[in-house]
Nucleic acid binder design. Structure first.
Lengths: 117, 117
DNA sequence: CGGGATCCGGGGCGATACTG
DNA sequence: CAGTATCGCCCCGGATCCCG
């Protein structure tokens, strides 16, 4: 459950759909780095769980739109909180991580050199 | 980044630590299903990123306590939102998923029998 | 255009055994 | 009590090919 909704691609897809219905190709273009496989899979899971609806228009060329359901929108708060926090603190995290690199915090082996000074 | 903070174990560890400092074994007992490996790994990552502090007491038997930092507490909102949503809607999700099972939504192959009736 | 099927490598993750 | 090191399975996830 948490595995599903906390999933990176799920978070990105849901937050991307917050603006409104989007087509498959729009989603793929909006979400940097997502592969066809992951996008399709994530969309299916979200549809299965009732978080989004899938609407296929019998046109040519074919068009498919995805949109958040009410349940999906109820997740928006949590998801945007995650995404927002990530965006707001990612530089601070990076700094902390770099600092840990120097102090050796969070590493298993001190390894040669760390204890020499 | 999202991969890290959206991680199932991260969410559970952070939300578990919301009450206050806890020992390693307390965390393992509180978080059902977590393995020693994942707990240790998650704690290290969180410490590296500056979300928790690790305090070792030079006693016997040894005692180590983990506690959220201010940065960690700033994540609490998002994390509890996730955990709360998951808890609140997991039954609804389960129902939707079961319903999809019948309608065939979200499955690749209709397979024999699904289209017969 | 939207998406299904398949192949394949990397590594996440869970036991297990051991240490200090 | 609080970890660390190792092994092995499994599945994620990208690349590719193909179809309606």
């Amino acid at each position: 459950m948490l595995d599903r909704i906390g999933d990176k691609w799920t978070v990105l897809v849901v937050s991307t759909l917050s603006a409104g219905a989007l087509r498959y190709s729009d989603l793929q273009a909006s979400i940097a780095g997502i592969s066809q496989r992951m996008l399709t899979q994530t969309l299916k899971h979200l549809e299965r769980d009732g978080l989004i609806t899938r609407t296929a228009y019998p046109e040519v060329p074919p068009r498919v739109e995805y949109e958040l359901t009410d349940l999906g929108r109820s997740l928006l708060g949590a998801v945007t909180a995650m995404a927002g926090w990530a965006a707001a603190h990612h530089s601070e995290i990076a700094r902390n991580r770099a600092a840990s690199e120097l102090t050796g915090v969070g590493r298993g082996k001190p390894s040669a050199g760390a204890s020499a000074g």
